[in-house]
Design a protein around this nucleic acid. Structure first.
Length: 568
RNA sequence: GCGCCCGUAGCUCAGCUGGAUAGAGCAUCGGCCUUCUAAGCCGAGGGUUGAAGGUUCGAGUCCUUCCGGGCGUACCA
C-alpha cells in the first residue's frame, strides 16, 4: 500500500470538511523522528490562501481527521504541521507476508520507453550507458506497476556513416574477422573518409545507392546492421538489460513515412522554404532579436534529418501504438531538439490528446579529470572493456574479502557485483547532472553503493541458512518491539510510495537512496537485535522482519536491474 | 549574443508540488569481533547552500541581477 497516498487522501478529505477544498495535503515522511512517521504540511498553504490562521485550520482538520487503527497519535506542531505517529500494529500489518510488496497502479497505461538507441555504425561505448541503464530501470518499474510497456530501441542505422563503412568494405573486401571489431573498422573507414577525397566521394555515392535500394549495397548494409545488433545484444545480456531484437525499431523503419510527414506539415500550413530547406518556424522558438529558430525537416538537397524521423516516430507511437506516455531517455544536449520536435508534433496533430511526451535528460559521464570519460589514449571507452574491468575489479575484491568462497561461484558473484556496481553508480546519481566515473567509489562496498546493498541481502540470506530456513518460506505477522525493529519496519512500508514516485518522475536515484536507507537501517537492527538465539515469539518475528527486508532489497534492486547473490 | 542545466562539508553526492535544527559516504580522529559475514556497527569534528537583493509566517528549493562552470544554438545524430 502507498501509505503516504492513503494518508494524503484522508488529510485531503479532512481539509475539505474544514473548509479548504482542493488543497494539496502535502503528506510526506517526517523530517525528524520526534515528528512521527509522516507529516502533513498542506494546512499552512491552505490557510494562507483562505486568509485564516493556520493553527486554527489545523485544529479543524484534526477534528475531521479519523485515523482510527492507523495512527496512535496525531498532533499539531509549529506553525501548523500535522504530525502523524503510526500505530505499531498498523505498520506490522503492512509488512504481513500476505501483503504484496507492490500493488499495481489504479489505471494501467500504455507506456513507450525510448532508450539505449546506439549508433549501429560503431560499437557501444560509455556514452550509451546511462540511457540504457536508466531506461531499463524505468521499464522494470512500469512493468511491476502493471502498465503495458513498449520498449523502443531507436537505433541509428541510417545515414552518411554507413556509406563510409560500405565503401571501406568494398575497398578492402573485409572478411568477417575484420568486421568483428566494428569500432576498429569504423575508425579505419573514418580515416579514409577524412584523408581521401575520392574515397569520401565514393562513400557519398554509396549512401545514395543505399537509399535507392541497390541490392548489393543493401546486402552490405544488412551485414553491418546484423553484426552490430549481435554486438549490442551481447552487451545487453551482460548488463541484464531487457532489450531484444523485437524491441528494435530503427531509424530506417520510418524511411517510408518521411515524405508523408513533410506533406502533412505542409497541409497544416507549417512549412516554410528557407535557403532551399523545408523548415517549421514556431513562435516560441525565436531568438531575442526576433530571428526565428527553424526546425529543418528536409535539407536543400532533399535529404531528411533526424528531426523528421523523430516526428515520424512520435506519430507512430501515439497513433499506432496508442501510447499514454512516451518517455525519452536521451542525453541532455538534445533538450532543445526535443522541445522543438514535441512542439511541432503537437501543432501538426501527430500527438493524440491523451499522449504525454516526456524527455528525461541526463548528464555526461566524466573522467577523474572532469573531462568527458575517455581511455588513457584519448579514445572512447567501449562498453565491453568497461564491463570486463568491472568484473576484474569485483573479482579481486571478492577474493580478498571472502577467501572461503567456492571457486565455482566466484565467476557469477564477480559478474553480479561488478556489473551491479557500474549500474548502481549511474542510477544512484541524480539523472540530470554530469557525474564522475570512479571505480573506487562504486566498488567501495560502503555507503550508497550496490555492494553494500547486496551485502545486506547476503547477510539475511546467510542468517536463514544458518537457522536451517529457506528465505521466503516464513509466513505470519511480526511484532515490532525494539526501536531498531520499529524504525526498520516504518521504513519498509514506504517501498510502494518510493516506487510510485519513480514511476511518476523517472528519477531512479530516489529508489537507490531509499534502498540504501533500508540496508543501513537493517544493519543497525542486525547489530542491536540478535535473531537466531532468541526465544519465540521474538525469534520468528525478527526473522519475518528480516525476510521482508530481503524481499524489499531484492525486489528493489531487481527494479533497478541489479542482481542479488546468496553469498559474497 | 541568446537559451537550457548546474554551483551544497576537503572529496563524491542527497535534499521529493517552499517547511521545523541542510543530510549520507569517502577521508580524519576515537570506540566495538568467545555471539547470525567487521564488506559491518557506534561516536566526534567538519557548512555564510557561488555572491547580493527580493517574495513570506518560513527559501538550498521560487523571482531579479551578478560571478563561475558545462552544454546547446539552420541543413550531423
Amino acid at each position: 500500500m502507498n501509505v503516504a497516498a492513503m494518508l494524503g487522501q484522508r488529510v485531503s478529505e479532512a481539509l475539505a470538511e474544514a473548509g479548504a477544498q482542493d488543497a494539496p495535503p502535502v503528506v510526506g515522511p517526517a523530517t525528524r523522528p520526534e515528528f512521527g512517521h509522516y507529516q502533513a504540511n498542506g494546512v499552512m498553504g491552505a490557510a494562507k490562501r483562505l486568509g485564516t490562521n493556520p493553527r486554527a485550520l489545523a485544529e479543524r482538520v484534526l477534528a475531521e481527521l479519523d485515523l482510527e487503527g492507523i495512527a496512535s497519535r496525531v498532533e499539531i506542531a509549529g506553525p501548523g504541521f500535522i504530525n502523524i505517529h503510526l500505530e505499531p500494529a498498523f505498520i506490522a500489518a503492512q509488512l504481513d507476508t500476505g501483503q504484496p510488496l507492490l500493488e499495481p497502479a489504479t489505471e494501467s497505461m500504455t507506456i513507450v520507453v525510448d532508450y539505449s538507441a546506439p549508433n549501429l555504425a560503431k560499437e557501444m561505448h560509455v556514452g550509451h550507458l546511462r540511457s540504457t541503464i536508466i531506461g531499463d530501470a524505468l521499464v522494470r518499474v512500469f512493468t511491476a506497476l502493471g502498465h503495458h510497456v513498449i520498449r523502443q530501441n531507436h537505433v541509428g542505422d541510417w545515414g552518411t556513416q554507413f556509406g563510409m563503412l560500405i565503401a571501406h568494405l568494398e575497398e578492402i573486401g573485409a572478411n568477417s574477422e575484420q568486421l568483428s571489431d566494428l569500432e576498429m573498422f569504423y575508425q579505419a573507414a573514418k580515416r579514409r573518409f577524412d584523408d581521401d577525397q575520392a574515397f569520401a566521394q565514393r562513400a557519398r555515392s554509396q549512401v545514395v545507392a543505399l537509399q535507392s535500394g541497390e541490392p548489393d549495397v543493401r546486402a552490405a548494409w544488412r551485414r553491418f546492421i546484423d553484426i552490430s545488433l549481435n554486438h549490442c545484444e551481447t552487451i545487453y545480456q551482460r548488463l541484464g538489460v531487457q532489450l531484444t531484437r523485437a524491441d528494435v525499431r530503427a531509424e530506417s523503419a520510418y524511411n517510408d513515412d518521411l515524405q508523408d510527414i513533410v506533406a502533412q506539415l505542409d497541409d497544416a500550413g507549417l512549412l516554410t522554404r528557407s535557403d532551399g530547406a523545408d523548415c517549421v518556424f514556431l513562435d516560441q522558438f525565436t531568438r531575442k532579436d526576433g530571428t526565428p529558430l527553424p526546425v529543418i525537416v528536409r535539407k536543400s538537397d532533399g535529404g531528411y534529418l533526424y528531426a523528421t524521423t523523430d516526428l515520424a516516430a512520435i506519430r507512430y507511437r501515439c497513433r499506432t501504438l496508442h501510447a499514454d506516455r512516451v518517455l525519452y531517455f536521451v542525453d541532455a544536449r538534445q533538450s532543445l531538439h526535443f522541445q522543438q520536435v514535441f512542439a511541432v508534433a503537437a501543432k501538426a496533430g501527430f500527438v493524440t490528446e491523451s499522449c504525454e511526451l516526456e524527455h528525461h535528460p541526463f548528464g555526461s559521464i566524466l573522467g577523474p579529470d572532469g573531462r568527458p570519460f575517455r581511455t588513457r589514449a584519448g579514445g572512447v571507452v567501449k562498453l565491453t572493456d568497461l564491463l570486463d574491468e568491472a568484473r576484474r575489479r569485483a573479482e579481486r575484491l571478492v577474493r580478498a574479502k571472502n577467501p572461503d568462497l567456492p571457486e565455482a561461484q566466484i565467476d557469477a558473484i564477480a559478474e553480479a557485483v561488478g556489473i551491479g556496481a557500474v549500474k548502481y553508480a549511474d542510477l544512484s546519481k541524480s539523472r540530470t547532472t554530469d557525474y564522475v566515473f570512479d571505480w573506487d567509489q562504486m566498488l567501495s562496498f560502503d555507503g550508497n553503493t550496490a555492494p553494500y546493498l547486496q551485502y545486506a541481502h547476503t547477510r539475511i540470506n546467510s542468517m536463514f541458512q544458518r537457522g536451517g530456513l529457506v528465505l521466503g518460506s516464513l509466513s505470519g505477522r511480526m511484532r515490532l518491539a525494539e526501536p531498531a525493529e520499529h524504525d526498520l519496519g516504518a521504513l519498509l512500508i514506504r517501498f510502494q510510495e518510493v516506487v510510485d514516485q519513480v514511476a511518476r518522475d523517472a528519477f531512479p536515484h530516489h529508489l537507490c537512496g531509499y534502498l540504501a536507507d533500508v540496508a543501513a537501517r537493517f544493519m543497525q537492527f542486525y547489530e542491536s537485535c540478535p535473531v537466531l538465539n532468541q526465544d519465540e515469539p521474538i525469534r520468528t518475528s525478527r526473522l519475518l522482519l528480516s525476510q521482508r527486508t530481503a524481499d524489499v532489497l531484492k525486489t528493489g534492486l531487481g527494479l533497478l536491474g541489479i542482481e542479488t547473490v546468496e553469498r559474497m
